[in-house]
Design a protein around this nucleic acid. Structure first.
Length: 884
RNA sequence: GCCCGGGUGGCGGAACUGGUAGACGCGCUGGACUCAAAAUCCAGUGGUAGCAAUACCAUGGGGGUUCGAUUCCCUUCCCGGGCACCA
């Protein structure tokens, strides 16, 4: 009987689907437990109380037109093995799949063909789902989510409304309803408010109460966590839309590689900076790869320092700068403004004015890419204006240069060429004086930017160390009212609007030019039909084409849509209660399933999705909707599968391997096993079509182990055996083989070391084959061990052994130490660290006994060479080393 | 430039907290079965020398700690990833 994987796999995939084998139960289902499913999680079926939950999640895919390639399922297979393992271990496992279905490719296709993106998307999803099902993945498809589905994006919009209607209170350290802020404004103005907000000037309660409604709304936008504001954005003319920082690399869009410019535009933004500190510090408490955490740390980019104001000479203006080294304040010899700095226009003076404005204009209009290309080249202009040094009263030149970034700090710096390499190069280039204020040793370099040293030439901080000097001068700065200590972040608020059709509409309408939230009960605001998916002639987003698209009250809706990452920032929560029409997920559901236990996906989402999903989780936690404030306890990044040429798989290289073809030729079980056997999950590794034969052979060998019986027409073909296992009691060697495998497979799965788990299964099967072991007591357990990896084959064998239901909920075997321990051990014997021979000794020999036995061994004499050993090291159970 | 990973047979990779380097698989060589092939099975397979027992060399290079180092330390080279005027 040959191993006919096609039949077997089809049979069991249908069985799982028909019997809803992998449907996970929510705790509420217990009360009305008779749901008619034949087999499923043991947890709530028998009313035996709650099984422990386990939530295993894959990053959901964007369903592209080209379908899956062999690299995509790698992570899905890994999580599937883990999920199946956890089910065997008695957990109620949540293992869902869905689709990140809004996005550019479907829209570009729509622009070209006029086909509605929903149609293309639907088709692609269909294809993806079928491909995934073919692999035998144990997803609970009844929980599938799609971000483009109105019943899903209703809740994306709902979360947006919450963000819109909240502000971040730094005093309580969390988000709060905007009403609490309004009350405070009405009572005390904003004097006492400590919020994460856009810079606003102080106002009193009286002022507030006298403001008009639009004025109030305008003011509140400075506080809301979702707000509309005029900001510098990354504009991509080719895509006709703005992009978030993490969607741009080296001045090119990640999607398509088009040039990106800086542009001032009114856009929706999310105040993620309010959460910067928590996003940073909570990295400590999650089990994520250190490189991902490091990338997030860098992205958030916290630095401690001070804001200091310098008077501009002859103007009623202050120039505010941020510095991490206020201790070097006495070393300032010039100031530098970013080309975008608003003061330039006001202070550029006399004969310098024209050149300065021209320079600033040119620098500003260069694309991000040009600017990066020119990095390292020094350029700048003296504005003709001066600052007054707050402590010395000396005049300090103000320059403009593109080495100062508008987007960081205040867009202006104090330059200390003696202690900053960039300032130093600039000063050298333009012949500006350099003043040392730190002595670090005997022969000081001309520019020293370290912080070991003692302050000199610095008035009241002379003689102090850098650390003390910083503290001391900040006290003085604050006392004199010229500045304050400040923590600065590289992280920016996230641009949240896109000038696109295929995304979530904002639940926002405009009245008198002021944005108002759509009532929660009127959600979802669904996408209107448009005649074309292009911007209007006047350059408005595609949604502006829907002229009749208005609120019942006749007000126009927002024409922007949300970015791709909106829907993916909370999807893991929807899986917990996917059909709930009243809330995004019930409190029982989130209480039971909690956050994700294992989250698996690519490292390319480190500073995008993985930061946003943490942000939204913390926000919903603040509002009391979630009992946890991190989305995933443990994160694993799977490595890429490269083409056979060792290059990244891509259509253009022609090295793409299609999983359908592999499954067709070898079956899903072989495919699964092979992807795992390829190497460590996290590592990048090349595909090798030849090696797949090896795992396929292994599965055939497994099959034969259960089919070694002879039938009448016994020929030479080993596939001719009939199913045969017997009930004889297993022998000790057989039990040893089995229990070694149980332990190894279990340990390896727990550590996500699937490659070595497969190897352990191979060893076990090889050894059992050598033993000619056809005993039920062994082979039954072996089938369970195998079932997470090759579930179809395992199900088939399980059924043949007389079991009725699915193997998916069989108990994972316990190994017993009794079968793992040996009573003799083969000691490797080294002489001077070189392995010379093996000697078999009883396990319980004491070191002196081992020593004696080794020296008495016949082989020992030739290495001793008549000498007596100087020293003998015996590591019990491990090794013996004789030093001669 | 800075920060992370990683360099082990012809190839993918194994090796627990320092303890037999090369598990498992691919490939290759020889053999069995067969008219032949496929499939399957058996034996061998890091390098050099030797008929062999065996010896020496070997985990990117160099140095060190240790009875003993792929594993720890220093140094250097190469590859992959991330960040990059962040004041």
């Amino acid at each position: 009987m040959p191993y006919s994987f096609h039949e077997i796999e089809k049979k069991w995939q249908e069985h799982w689907e028909k019997n809803k084998t992998f449907q996970a139960k929510n705790p509420v289902d217990v009360s009305h437990a008779s749901d008619g499913s034949a087999e499923s999680s043991p947890s709530f079926g028998g009313g035996k109380g709650e099984a422990p939950k386990f939530y295993v999640l894959d990053m959901f895919p964007y369903p592209s037109g080209s379908g899956l390639h062999v690299g995509h399922p790698l992570g899905y297979i890994a999580t599937d093995i883990f999920s199946r393992y956890k089910r065997l271990k008695g957990f109620n496992v949540l293992h869902p799949m869905g689709f990140d279905a809004f996005g550019l490719p479907a829209e570009q296709y729509a622009i070209q063909t006029g086909q509605h993106p929903a149609v293309t998307t639907e088709k692609n999803i269909e294809r993806y789902r079928n491909q995934l099902k073919q692999i035998g993945l144990s997803f609970d498809w009844s929980r599938e989510v799609r971000t483009c589905d109105p019943s899903y994006y209703k809740w994306t919009q709902w979360i947006f409304l919450k963000l819109f209607s909240c502000w971040y209170n730094n005093k309580s350290g969390k988000a709060e309803p905007i009403e609490t802020l309004i009350e405070e404004f009405e009572r005390n103005g904003n004097r006492e408010v400590d919020a994460s907000c856009t810079e606003v000037s102080c106002f009193t309660a009286q002022w507030w109460n006298q403001m008009t409604e639009p004025e109030k709304q305008e003011m509140l936008l400075n506080y809301r966590l979702a707000y509309l504001s005029e900001t510098m954005v990354n504009w991509c003319p080719e895509l006709g839309t703005v992009l978030a920082n993490e969607e741009v690399t080296n001045g090119l869009s990640d999607r398509g590689g088009h040039p990106v410019e800086r542009k001032l535009m009114k856009q929706w933004q999310l105040r993620i900076t309010a959460y910067a500190e928590r996003l940073l510090s909570d990295l400590e408490k999650i089990d994520w790869p250190s490189n991902i955490r490091e990338m997030q740390r860098n992205w958030i980019g916290r630095s401690e320092g001070a804001l200091v104001k310098f008077r501009v000479d002859g103007h009623a203006l202050d120039l505010e700068i941020f510095t991490t080294r206020p201790d070097t304040l006495f070393g300032v010899t010039f100031m530098v403004l970013a080309p975008e700095h608003p003061h330039i226009e006001k202070i550029a003076a006399g004969k310098y004015r024209e050149g300065v404005l021209e320079y600033a204009h040119r620098a500003m209009n260069r694309t991000e890419r040009d600017r990066l290309a020119g990095a390292g080249k020094i350029s700048g202009k003296f504005t003709g204006a001066y600052c007054i040094h707050p402590f010395t009263g000396q005049l300090v030149q103000i320059w403009v240069s593109d080495y100062v970034l508008a987007g960081y700090g205040t867009g202006a710096i104090m330059a200390v060429p003696a202690h900053d390499t960039r300032d130093y190069s600039f000063a050298k280039h333009f012949n500006i004086p350099i003043k040392k204020v730190i002595r670090c040793g005997e022969n000081d370099p001309e520019c020293y930017d370290g912080n070991d040293g003692v302050l000199i030439n610095s008035d009241f901080i002379n003689g102090l160390g850098v650390r003390q000097a910083i503290n001391r001068i900040i006290v003085e700065i604050e006392k004199q009212g010229i500045g304050r200590a400040k923590v600065n972040y590289k992280l920016h608020d996230a641009v949240f609007s896109r000038q696109r059709y295929w995304g979530e509409p904002f639940p926002v309408y405009y009245k008198n030019g002021v944005p108002y939230p759509v009532d929660e009960h009127a959600l979802p605001v669904t996408l209107p039909k448009v005649d074309k998916y292009l911007p209007t002639e006047t350059g408005d987003p595609p949604l502006a084409r829907a002229k009749e698209w208005k609120t019942p009250g006749g007000y126009p809706y927002e024409h922007n849509t949300m970015p791709g990452w909106a829907g993916s920032s909370w999807y893991y929560l929807r899986y917990e209660d996917p059909h709930n029409e009243n809330v995004f997920a019930s409190s029982q559901a989130v209480q039971y399933w909690q956050n994700v236990d294992i989250y698996l996906g690519g490292a390319e989402h480190a500073t995008g999705h993985l930061l946003y999903v943490r942000f939204w989780t913390k926000f919903l936690h603040d509002l009391g909707y979630l009992p946890f404030d991190e989305p995933a306890k443990k994160l694993i990044n799977q490595g890429m599968i490269l083409g056979e040429d060792g290059e990244k798989m891509s259509k253009s290289r022609g090295n793409v391997i299609n999983p359908d073809d592999v499954i067709n030729e070898y079956g899903a079980d072989t495919f699964r096993l092979y992807e795992m056997f390829l190497g460590p999950l996290e590592q990048a590794k090349p595909w090798d079509t030849r090696s797949i034969e090896g795992v396929h052979r292994f599965l055939k060998k497994v099959w034969r182990l259960y089919h070694s019986g002879k039938n009448e027409s016994q020929g030479n073909n080993p596939d001719d055996g009939v199913f045969l296992i017997n009930g004889e009691p297993p022998s000790l060697p057989e039990l040893k083989i089995l229990h070694r495998a149980i332990k190894k497979v279990q340990d390896d799965i727990e550590h996500f070391a699937f490659n070595t788990a497969v190897s352990a299964l191979m060893v076990c099967v090889n050894e059992l084959t050598d033993q000619k072991c056809f005993k039920k007591g062994i082979l039954e357990t072996l089938a369970i061990l195998l079932s997470p990896f090759a579930p179809h084959l395992a199900e088939e064998l399980w059924e043949k052994m007389g079991h009725r239901g699915s193997i998916s909920y069989a108990p994972f075997p316990d190994y017993s130490d009794e079968y793992l321990k040996e009573d003799v051990i083969k000691y490797p014997v080294q002489f001077n660290g070189k392995m010379r021979f093996m000697i078999e000794l009883p396990i319980d020999y004491s070191p002196p006994q081992v020593e004696a036995a080794v020296l008495a061994a016949p082989q020992a004499a030739r290495y001793l060479n008549g000498n007596s050993p100087r020293k003998i090291i015996v590591v019990p159970g491990k090794i013996v080393n004789v030093v001669v």
